[in-house]
């Protein structure tokens, strides 16, 4: 620890510096920096770690946030706690964190049921810090960049190709226009209608909950972008009247009885109550 006290001070000063109140936190930060920097230097997942120095700061901030908000279930080092049903986060990557936190799913209130999407209370910077920290724990997909998910400027052929991919891979759980559907044991495939393109791509790459992972090799970014474009555009198609929730024939049958037969019975009562005035 001598290096802390360089600069011609006496050994007494050195000792007092060592015992200074700020010494421990500073030391901690520095050692974290050292770990982060070393990790960044040797880690293969370099794509999520662009700028070493800035990143180390981010990771440190992320770790602090993690200890406050995530560690009670996922463990201080993100190793997971089996008895809480919390998975290890050592290899989930930044994309998973960004998806789970930005959709409000994490931190979750009740670990026994599927995390519902809710209002996200973290700022973008906080999410980035959390993501950087979790990414620093191991490998995993990075947060996608805008050119990977932004569907602007796709041709109609691209979009209809996305529709085919969507119907083949997604609609079985998420319904034909992404309105969502039921899964066994109380789980649901959520609606995609409020998801952002970034979140959709992150979900594809990280497979949250019961969703399978669609890796880059199976579904290249180009195709993922087509799917995202289709989901956006199919929900922008104006309905031919009231869409009745977009749930298909169950809702239609309900309205046939309630609005159709219901109103016609009222008319029948009216007609029968009018006597003949011939």
């Amino acid at each position: 620890m001598r290096f802390l006290a360089r600069g011609g001070r006496s050994s007494k000063d050195r000792t007092s510096l060592r015992r200074h109140r700020a010494a421990r936190p500073v030391l901690l930060l520095l050692s974290l920096f050292l770990v982060g920097a070393t990790y960044a230097a040797v880690s293969p997942a370099t794509e999520s770690v662009a700028d070493g120095a800035a990143d180390a700061q981010l990771i440190a901030q992320g770790k602090a946030l993690f200890s406050q908000n995530c560690a009670s279930c996922h463990g201080l080092g993100g190793e997971g706690l089996a008895q809480q049903g919390a998975p290890a986060l050592t290899n989930v990557g930044a994309a998973a964190v960004d998806f789970q936190v930005s959709t409000g799913r994490m931190p979750m209130a009740n670990p026994l049921v599927q995390a519902p999407a809710k209002e996200n209370t973290f700022t973008e910077d906080e999410i980035a810090a959390l993501a950087a920290y979790v990414a620093s724990l191991g490998q995993g997909p990075a947060i996608p960049t805008e050119d990977q998910y932004n569907p602007a400027g796709m041709s109609p052929e691209d979009v209809s190709r996305g529709g085919e991919l969507f119907r083949t891979n997604c609609s079985a759980c998420h319904n034909f226009k992404g309105a969502g559907g039921a899964l066994p044991n109380g789980a649901v495939a959520p609606s995609l209608q409020n998801a952002t393109p970034k979140q959709i791509l992150e979900a594809l790459r990280t497979g949250p909950g019961q969703m399978p992972i669609f890796a880059e090799g199976a579904l290249p970014d180009e195709n993922a972008k087509q799917v995202i474009a289709y989901i956006e555009q199919v929900n922008a198609v104006p309905a031919a009247g009231l869409s009745l929730g977009g749930l298909g024939p169950v809702a239609e049958g309900f309205w046939a009885w309630v609005a159709g037969i219901g109103s016609l019975v009222l008319f029948a009562v009216w007609i029968a109550s009018r006597g003949a005035r011939a």
Binding site: R167, T168, H174, N175, L244, G248, P249, E252, W255
Partner: peptide, 22 residues
């Protein structure tokens, strides 16, 4: 009231299915 919006369902393809098939 919109009913049976077939353009949203897409053409039949035996390898595809949608949630809420009723």
């Amino acid at each position: 009231f919109q009913i049976n919006p077939v353009w949203l369902y897409g053409p039949y393809n035996p390898s595809q299915v949608t949630a809420g098939s009723q």
